[in-house]
Lab assay of single mutants.
Amino acid sequence: TYYTVKSGDTLNKIAAQYGVSVANLRSWSGISGDLIFVGQKLIVKKG
């Protein structure tokens, strides 16, 4: 599943919304830090 980052989103908010960890969200999407951008597509795998 892809999630497109919206204004005001954080990795914590997105992870909580999908019931996954921030570490997994980073790993799946190839992100090393906490910086995400509006319009960026993140990969989300539901448990």
Score class of each variant (00 low, 15 high):
residue 35 L to E: 15
residue 42 L to K: 01
residue 27 S to K: 14
residue 11 L to H: 02
residue 22 V to Y: 03
residue 10 T to P: 01
residue 10 T to N: 08
residue 4 T to W: 12
residue 5 V to D: 01
residue 44 V to W: 04
residue 31 I to W: 06
residue 47 G to A: 13
residue 3 Y to V: 08
residue 2 Y to A: 08
residue 5 V to F: 04
residue 15 A to Q: 00
residue 24 N to S: 11
residue 47 G to M: 12
residue 27 S to C: 14
residue 33 G to Y: 06
residue 30 G to T: 06
residue 26 R to C: 12
residue 9 D to Q: 01
residue 4 T to P: 02
residue 17 Q to D: 11
residue 46 K to A: 14
residue 8 G to M: 05
residue 41 K to C: 13
residue 31 I to H: 04
residue 44 V to D: 03
residue 19 G to C: 10
residue 7 S to V: 15
residue 19 G to F: 07
residue 44 V to K: 02
residue 34 D to T: 08
residue 30 G to F: 07
residue 33 G to K: 06
residue 32 S to Q: 13
residue 45 K to D: 11
residue 47 G to E: 14
residue 31 I to K: 02
residue 6 K to I: 09
residue 35 L to A: 14
residue 10 T to Y: 03
residue 20 V to N: 02
residue 46 K to W: 15
residue 8 G to S: 05
residue 11 L to D: 00
residue 40 Q to Y: 04
residue 16 A to I: 11
residue 9 D to E: 04
residue 24 N to E: 15
residue 25 L to K: 00
residue 18 Y to L: 14
residue 35 L to S: 14
residue 9 D to Y: 01
residue 28 W to I: 05
residue 26 R to E: 06
residue 15 A to I: 02
residue 12 N to S: 15
residue 43 I to R: 10
residue 2 Y to G: 06
residue 11 L to T: 02
residue 10 T to F: 04
residue 13 K to E: 10
residue 29 S to W: 05
residue 12 N to M: 15
residue 13 K to F: 10
residue 42 L to M: 07
residue 19 G to P: 01
residue 14 I to K: 00
residue 22 V to H: 03
residue 9 D to R: 01
residue 5 V to A: 04
residue 29 S to V: 05
residue 1 T to L: 14
residue 31 I to S: 03
residue 29 S to I: 05
residue 1 T to R: 12
residue 26 R to I: 13
residue 1 T to K: 11
residue 32 S to W: 09
residue 17 Q to P: 00
residue 2 Y to R: 07
residue 35 L to P: 08
residue 45 K to I: 11
residue 21 S to C: 08
residue 6 K to N: 07
residue 37 F to V: 11
residue 20 V to M: 08
residue 12 N to P: 13
residue 7 S to E: 15
residue 36 I to H: 01
residue 37 F to N: 08
residue 17 Q to F: 13
residue 2 Y to M: 10
residue 33 G to Q: 08
residue 28 W to Q: 04
residue 41 K to T: 12
residue 21 S to F: 04
residue 45 K to V: 11
residue 8 G to F: 05
residue 1 T to P: 10
residue 16 A to K: 12
residue 22 V to L: 09
residue 36 I to R: 00
residue 28 W to S: 05
residue 29 S to Q: 06
residue 25 L to D: 00
residue 46 K to M: 15
residue 37 F to W: 11
residue 34 D to S: 09
residue 22 V to R: 04
residue 34 D to M: 09
residue 38 V to K: 07
residue 5 V to W: 05
residue 5 V to H: 01
residue 40 Q to V: 05
residue 38 V to Y: 05
residue 39 G to W: 05
residue 17 Q to Y: 13
residue 20 V to F: 04
residue 14 I to T: 00
residue 15 A to H: 01
residue 23 A to K: 10
residue 13 K to T: 15
residue 41 K to D: 06
residue 27 S to P: 01
residue 23 A to I: 10
residue 16 A to C: 12
residue 16 A to Y: 10
residue 30 G to Y: 07
residue 32 S to P: 08
residue 11 L to P: 02
residue 38 V to C: 08
residue 10 T to Q: 05
residue 2 Y to L: 10
residue 45 K to H: 13
residue 7 S to W: 12
residue 26 R to D: 01
residue 21 S to N: 07
residue 30 G to Q: 10
residue 47 G to K: 11
residue 29 S to H: 04
residue 46 K to N: 13
residue 16 A to G: 09
residue 24 N to Q: 15
residue 13 K to L: 11
residue 9 D to K: 00
residue 3 Y to C: 04
residue 31 I to A: 04
residue 36 I to Y: 03
residue 18 Y to Q: 07
residue 4 T to S: 07
residue 25 L to Y: 00
residue 17 Q to T: 11
residue 30 G to E: 09
residue 36 I to W: 03
residue 6 K to D: 04
residue 42 L to P: 01
residue 2 Y to C: 12
residue 37 F to S: 09
residue 12 N to W: 14
residue 42 L to N: 00
residue 16 A to V: 11
residue 15 A to W: 04
residue 3 Y to K: 01
residue 22 V to P: 08
residue 18 Y to M: 10
residue 34 D to H: 09
residue 1 T to M: 14
residue 7 S to M: 14
residue 7 S to H: 14
residue 8 G to C: 05
residue 40 Q to R: 03
residue 16 A to L: 13
residue 26 R to V: 11
residue 3 Y to Q: 01
